[in-house]
Design a protein around this nucleic acid. Sequence first.
DNA 1: CAAGATTCCTGGTGGC
DNA 2: TGCCACCAGGAATCTT
Length: 273
Amino acid sequence: MPELPEAETIGRALEKVLCGRKICAVEVFTPAMRSALTPLEHAGLPGRRIVSVRRRGRYLTAALDDNRGLLMHFGMSGVVRVESGDVPRRKHEHVFIHLDDGNIFRFECTRRFSLLEVHELTATGFPAVLDQLGVEPLSGDFTGEYLANAFSRRKIPVKVALMDNAIVCGIGNIYATEALFVAGIDPRRAAGEVSAAECRRIVAEAVRILQEAIICGGTTISDFKSVDGSEGKFVQKLQIYGKRGEVCPRCGEIIDSCQLGGRTSAFCPGCQK
DNA sequence: CAAGATTCCTGGTGGC
DNA sequence: TGCCACCAGGAATCTT
């Protein structure tokens, strides 16, 4: 389930195989997704060249040579591949974009939560629809002071706030769960009650975990695969996500879980205060 | 206006 | 073995 490290992993791989390629043809096999895919067929993509691939939060933008870009989001089961047409179309591959080197950019999504749209790009290099996103976790803007200010007076659980893309983008259930565990913060606490010092700890651990996950090529729980089909190895380093009922690796208590913002949230009652 | 609930979708899982 | 309820997840859209 792609969060920021998975999007970064996909983006780096796509940059190598897509940059400089010209689009020859577009085929849409599944019109009804979360957002309709049919506009892709009428967007005048053939003849356009892909000039760059950049990430913002969990989104990727493949910029074209006409100031537009392909905006991608992978939902929880989105997979992209760039391979030849010799491989038959898989059941949940919804879009083929044929490239001038003979390969096909294939967009797959089993649970149909993914997004693939053409947008005008602004001066930021991204579509205007991304302007609402909060700070980038791996930029210098994501500081303890920023987080403490964003959390101020908020009554929602700190974990829900950490997953709020309008505050900081790209941190989903896996990495929010892990970061709060390592920082020793109970995910159920009201965001506004978390101290500035604790916010600094959350930021430091979240950044460290995201960077480590990128080095590992992301986290594969069930669906995630990078462009070449490889799986993310960070799953082996997860300390608490999905481990309810197991022994806490830090204090030996039994890991518990609860529902926060509609998401299962594992935590250790012994060492997350 | 903030917070919480609901919705979309499919495949894997576990109970009986 | 089959059937079915349930769960996973991001983000938009609702209800309170």
